[in-house]
């Protein structure tokens, strides 16, 4: 798994990247009440705003960790946004991107780097 400094995670399988927000982000946001996802088919560039996640008192943008086309979204979050709190790195995934440029993966943080980054924040 790879990470961004905006607290998104990415898991790559072939040319497909699954994207979600990290357990740290989910914890900081508190109870998530709504997730706004893009239409499948949308093309995004790395660091574009691609989704919005809302708690009661805050709305935060989720940025595309990689460029490509959104090919699938986790529609179940519409009915059950609480999944993001329960399983941020699993069933609470947001969307899948067909990767346009694999070299962008190099801009992302490793697990270890991200942990260090988070510790630095507190």
């Amino acid at each position: 798994m790879k990470y961004t400094d905006q607290h998104e995670w990415v898991e790559v399988e072939g040319d497909l990247a699954t994207v979600g927000i990290t357990p740290y982000a989910a914890e900081q946001l508190g109870d998530i009440v709504y997730v706004e996802l893009p239409e499948p088919g949308k093309s995004v560039k790395q660091k574009d705003e691609v989704a919005v996640v809302e708690s009661v008192k805050a709305a935060s943008e989720v940025y595309a960790p990689l460029s490509g086309e959104v090919v699938e979204i986790n529609a179940s979050l519409g009915e059950a946004p609480e999944t993001v709190n329960a399983e941020p790195a699993g069933a609470g995934w947001f969307l899948k991107i067909k990767i346009a440029d694999a070299s962008e993966l190099e801009n992302l943080m490793s697990e270890e780097a991200y942990q260090q980054f988070v510790e630095g924040l507190d």
Partner: peptide
């Protein structure tokens, strides 16, 4: 649903 409102979303 106050996340639609200006005191939270500011310019959005």
């Amino acid at each position: 649903l106050s996340t639609r409102e200006q005191h939270i979303r500011r310019e959005k």
